[in-house]
Design a protein around this nucleic acid. Structure first.
Lengths: 144, 144
DNA sequence: AATCCGATATTGCATATACAATTTGCATAT
DNA sequence: ATATGCAAATTGTATATGCAATATCGGATT
């Protein structure tokens, strides 16, 4: 093998490569910061969203996070086993959940570490990227 | 439970949440576009990088992609089993790899689908985010 | 009432990811 | 020559992710 044609169109301008790379780098900053508490970036997001919602309906959370329902289902289950979330009675097929006391306590402990990570992420990203990333979430839809 | 204190500092400004969300959305665009070929966004990145490098050393690829060596090791192994990559003799502990004929053929088939996904990603992200994401990769380091 | 249907959630399966620990090859020091 | 240590890669384990298929609840149709 070992050919290198000049006609390669896929290069480092690929948004998938850059978005995934960015996700790895940024996730690492938060994971490292909160590792002493045994909680990961993805879980912090779910803790915070649940806190804000009070009682969170899975389908709502999925819509906000653009996350597949099966992914959320398993993330909730892991955090339920950890004692941070609990499922509450809901209507129909819905299985809403909320924070437990342990979940609230963890969230409070996480906050100062999150703040440091948030600051570090901002400097790592630089102003342009940080500002661009801070735009309205709803705009992440094709052509609007 | 069901309390909602006003003192919650972690909100939707969280860069980890936004970077991961972005990664899910953008990855989905490319995964969907290239699903007919049975190849995923992460694998397309590795195909393209390997093509550009000719012979790719794992540690180099990890540095460029900010990816853990263990992750790359398993991704390479999967793609080797698929017949797209092959390991070539290297010095010391190094296990460099390159594209196989099948890998080159796949890459060529992927290119037009990638172009469509790249265009869709650009419109989905919007100009500001797309431009910001297109900045130099090397700047993803704290404070520089 | 029995059936169908749409919304919602969960399961099976596969890939992607990282940390900790281990293996391995090479160079250097003793 | 052996030991020591460094660099690179792999393995064990756990979380994160999505698609396809399945299960389940409740409402609408007949």
């Amino acid at each position: 093998m070992a050919k290198t044609p000049q006609t390669l169109t896929i290069d480092d301008s690929c948004f998938a490569m850059r978005a995934r790379l960015l996700s790895r780098v940024v996730t690492g900053i938060y994971d490292e910061a909160t590792r002493p508490l045994g909680v990961k970036a993805s879980q912090i997001t779910l803790l915070a969203i649940t806190a804000h919602m009070g009682v969170a309906r899975p389908s709502d959370v999925c819509e906000v996070l653009h996350m597949d329902a099966s992914t959320l289902s398993r993330n909730v289950e892991r955090m339920r086993k950890s004692g941070w979330l609990e499922v509450v009675p809901g209507e129909g097929r819905s299985q809403p959940f909320q924070l437990t006391d342990a979940g609230w306590k963890l969230l409070k402990k996480v906050e100062p570490l999150w703040k440091k990570a948030q600051q570090k992420a901002r400097t790592t990203l630089g102003k342009e990227l940080a500002d661009a990333l801070s735009g309205p979430l709803a705009e992440l839809r094709p052509t609007d």
